[in-house]
């Protein structure tokens, strides 16, 4: 893997999956394996600040769980109303202040580009925990980690993306990251929520092709991975349009009858009704493991960026 070592990441930020090369991604995924069951005092004396300008359950808790599992401590706020933002403080100033209180920062912000700005303000590492509709790189890494775990690698598989492919930032980042690898893309969505043109151009520019369809059953039996996302009612300009498609993309035990034996279903969560609870007990359901992998990958990242490694 070239010259990449654990030290290559020390002091760096993780703002966008674009910032990572294929080799760096593979290094992180491989390094993360060490953290699967790790609990200890590797980061004893270190502090993680979580500055969350909008609510999040999974991301904030899994970062906190990661830091606590590594023996570190956490502090932070979880909505802008409980911080100085409500007094009109700029993001820049908040970050400059928090860098004096902690060793590493995780930021979630409703505005796109906020994490990049925070990383420029901060002299300590910044991890993007989601900036509006833009990036959520630790989600992408945990998705990649989950796929590589169930597929034993990131090449030679067929992945279908289902649901809201227009606004779904997890889909966009994962597609971008997977362009580094050898897999086939299937995009399944109502036309109004199809993958933006720019991403399709990016795929073609890499010399790859993809299948686009509105009908899940057309392609379901060919897939190795099905990545399900939630379709939000508010995305539809016309509520009638929503009514038409809302049930078409619901995963039930019934529609899984003819799928490949080793199909795995992923979902960035939270789900509403797009995967029925009855599916949870089927061998295809991977989404809760996927959530759990989030802690593993975040432990590995915090360790790498702080330069205190296992």
């Amino acid at each position: 893997m070239g010259n990449i070592t654990e030290k290559s990441f020390k002091g760096k930020d993780l703002v966008s999956i674009r910032d990572l090369s294929k080799e760096e991604i593979l290094f992180i995924l491989n390094y993360a394996k060490k953290f699967e069951n790790y609990r200890g005092n590797l980061l004893s004396g270190k502090i993680l600040a979580t500055i969350f300008y909008e609510p999040s359950t999974r991301t904030r808790l899994s970062f906190e769980s990661s830091m606590l599992s590594l023996g570190g401590k956490v502090l932070g706020f979880s909505s802008s109303s409980s911080s100085s933002v409500s007094k009109g403080e700029s993001l820049w100033d908040t970050v400059k202040t928090v860098e004096g209180y902690a060793d590493i920062i995780v930021i979630r912000h409703p505005l796109e580009g906020a994490a990049r700005l925070a990383s420029e303000a901060s002299s300590i590492p910044v991890i993007n925990g989601g900036d509006g509709a833009n990036q959520h790189p630790t989600q992408t890494l945990l998705d990649l980690y989950t796929i590589s775990k169930v597929r034993e690698g990131l090449d030679n598989f067929k992945i279908g993306f289902l649901g809201d492919l227009k606004y779904g930032r997890t889909v966009h980042s994962l597609v971008q990251a997977l362009l580094n690898f050898d897999c086939d893309f299937y995009f399944i969505s109502p036309e109004v929520l199809s993958l933006p043109l720019g991403f399709k151009e990016e795929i073609r520019a890499e010399g790859k092709s993809f299948v686009e369809t509105e009908n899940l059953l057309d392609v379901l039996s060919q897939l190795d991975i099905l990545y399900v996302t939630r379709i939000q009612r508010e995305r539809f300009p016309d509520p009638m349009e929503y009514e038409k498609v809302k049930n078409v993309y619901i995963i039930t035990p019934d529609i899984l009858k003819d799928v490949k034996k080793d199909l795995k279903i992923l979902h960035p969560m939270p789900r509403v009704n797009e995967i029925l609870k009855e599916v949870d007990k089927l061998p295809y359901a991977e989404y809760f493991n996927q959530s759990k992998n989030g802690v593993t990958i975040r432990k590995a990242l915090i360790s790498l960026l702080l330069g205190v490694t296992l």
């Binding site: 700029s90 993001l91 820049w92 912000h109 409703p110 505005l111 796109e112 580009g113 906020a114 990049r116 700005l117 900036d131 509006g132 509709a133």
Partner: peptide, 14 residues
């Protein structure tokens, strides 16, 4: 000027 109304550059002085 960034054409994305949700871009941080349209809010912070940068």
């Amino acid at each position: 000027k960034c054409g994305n109304p949700n871009c941080i550059t349209n809010y912070e002085n940068i």
